[in-house]
Design a protein around this nucleic acid. Structure first.
Lengths: 159, 159
DNA sequence: CACCTATGGAGAATGATTCTCAATATCTAA
DNA sequence: TTAGATATTGAGAATCATTCTCCATAGGTG
């Protein structure tokens, strides 16, 4: 709710109009704790009686990402997901299970330190981070599933 | 070239036929040092006189990724890119400039250690890693470009 | 060498994302 | 508060990467 203020501030700083639709999209995203797809955001807007078009949702999500308040994710589903970054480590990643599709957050302080150091070495000014680790979650391992490439003794480690 | 052997081995281990097309795609990918799009791979195959269909390229890339010999990347262009992992750190990421689109490799030993530790905490068996940092490269910074969200004093660090 | 099965290819189908453009909302200044 | 300049919105078309379909064909086994 009040996080929407920050987005409004961002829009004004950029000289962009603060519209009802942009506020509505931001509210829905900031009120949700999960990883939202554009479809889900549209659904939440519809529930609230908002009639925001799909194109507007896409356009607004782009601004939210640029503002740094929201991060874009790709869990390999063929479409993007979005999550706001409040109450999260500034740099956090995801463990994605290739068997069940489950997603676990990784909150790791060290990551930001290391990533910033690497970026600094190159004279690079970092804005957004994205870390995803694909593999098998504990539940699926316990259920007897195995990684598909397990059979090949990994040559990469040895080169 | 000889890396194609490893792919053949993978296919046999999985009980999958080793076809001309699969070998041709693997050769093209292993001979290239860059980040290839499917379009570019198709082009390279055409140059070599191969008549490999687009669907086959996609299917083969999926296998190469599952084999662990090739990694899938998304630099925010709207399509995927692929790179083989030989001669690279097993866990490496990319610095992606939002201004010029330039991509710089990050070879950072610590990353794998940290990421493995985090994964282990959750009982997760990692298979593939993906790390991307978006921002401004040194060249674009020197040229006077600025990050688009710079105006908003970042609230995330403070929460 | 022949059979069985999985693959390959062409193009259609899918589906996320982007674009178009007329109608409308926002912001600024008086 | 209003007028006017400007940017946004929305519906649907357009784009474009990726996946699917189906049958002719190649690969692997004995």
């Amino acid at each position: 709710m009040s996080y929407v203020h920050l987005f409004r501030r961002y829009l004004r700083e950029q000289g962009l109009p603060v519209t009802q639709q942009r506020e509505a999209v931001a509210e829905v995203v900031f009120e949700s704790g999960g990883h939202l797809s554009v479809d889900e955001i549209e659904g939440l807007l519809r529930e609230r009686g908002e009639k925001t078009g799909k194109a507007t949702v896409y356009r607004t999500m782009e601004m939210l990402v640029k503002s740094g308040l929201v991060a874009e994710r790709d869990f390999g589903e063929g479409f993007k997901r979005y999550e706001h970054l409040f109450g999260q480590m500034p740099v956090h990643g995801h463990l994605i299970c290739e068997e069940c599709g489950g997603v676990t957050e990784i909150q790791e302080v060290e990551l930001k330190r290391i990533q910033d150091r690497v970026a600094a070495l190159e004279g690079f000014a970092p804005a957004r981070y994205r870390l995803e680790i694909f593999g098998l979650c504990a539940v699926c391992r316990a259920a007897g599933h195995e990684l598909e490439w397990k059979g090949l003794s990994c040559p990469i480690e040895r080169v």
